[in-house]
Nucleic acid binder design. Structure first.
Lengths: 152, 152
DNA sequence: CGTAATCCCAAGTGTGTGGGTCGGAATTAT
DNA sequence: ATAATTCCGACCCACACACTTGGGATTACG
């Protein structure tokens, strides 16, 4: 049940973007330096994020990335689904095209499947329930407390 | 966020064991045939399950495996933790020894970590909340309904 | 207009894991 | 003695992860 660095870094980077919302584009170099990540690797993550409309890009010098829509309208789940794919524990727990699984001849499978479906729904609830705006809010609170961790 | 075939097959096999609870040991061959799985692969899964005390083995002819404790006291989470390892989405969301992560200098990481911790707890709640007994119960209901899927 | 900063794109790479297979040794009921 | 089992360790191959490398296209700024 793990998420990979793609989803992890993706959410972190998106949070930093959200922190700069309304202040012009943020280059990946800045994010990479601030968070100790590889700039080139971040590029790979931002390609699908852009295609999904979660970010907008501005090319050329002084360019960078902007949120594609308000921070309150982007959830952690949105980012994860783009970078990690569907969050179902196993494929046959997905909603769509269950035809593929209709000829499933293993009764135990279909019995246990209900557990995965329940798990899937719960995971979705959690990650859809946290927005970038909320993460920003917490970040600012930490800053306000002059938390030394926050050198942002 | 996927579980692998280990956890999946493991829970299915354990459910079949639970269905035969009190009726003597069930050989892996039977489970493998009933569910269309590889007997050798199942062996690999039952080694750790036995070490964890979730099953007991009876060697030799007419041998097989038995539940290590009552079906009501074995949850899906128990099986998953043995076969999949900890169910935390990322390592630093685990409970124990957070010292390793104390020198985490990335503020965004620690912010986002809260989401993973929440996710971790929710996942645990779901999988710990389903016991083999409940799965058996549902299996028997399906049988009672003469569900053709159930040739068990 | 040149240059530097940036995004964009396509490959390559090394390590690990997933999902098994294979062959055989030890144990035991019949 | 034989057959049915568990037990054990090795092997294997394809694919995913977590990047790196090398460049091309675009644009602000001097």
């Amino acid at each position: 049940m793990n998420i990979t660095t793609k989803g992890h870094y993706g959410v972190m980077a998106m949070t930093e973007l959200a922190m700069h919302d309304g202040k012009g584009p943020v280059p990946l170099k800045t994010i990479a330096e601030n968070q100790g990540l590889s700039e080139h690797y971040l590029e790979q993550l931002f390609a699908p994020l852009r295609r999904a409309g979660l970010v907008r890009s501005v090319r050329g010098a002084q360019g960078g990335y902007l949120l594609g829509r308000p921070a309150r309208e982007i959830s952690v789940g949105d980012v994860l689904r783009v970078l990690e794919g569907p969050l179902a524990p196993i494929e046959c727990a997905l909603d769509g095209n269950p035809e593929e699984w209709e000829n499933c001849t293993n009764p135990y499978n279909c019995l246990v499947r209900d557990v995965w479906v329940k798990l899937y729904k719960t995971i979705e609830e959690v990650v859809n329930g946290v927005t970038l705006e909320e993460l920003c809010q917490k970040a600012r609170e930490a800053q306000a407390r002059r938390n030394p961790m926050f050198y942002i």
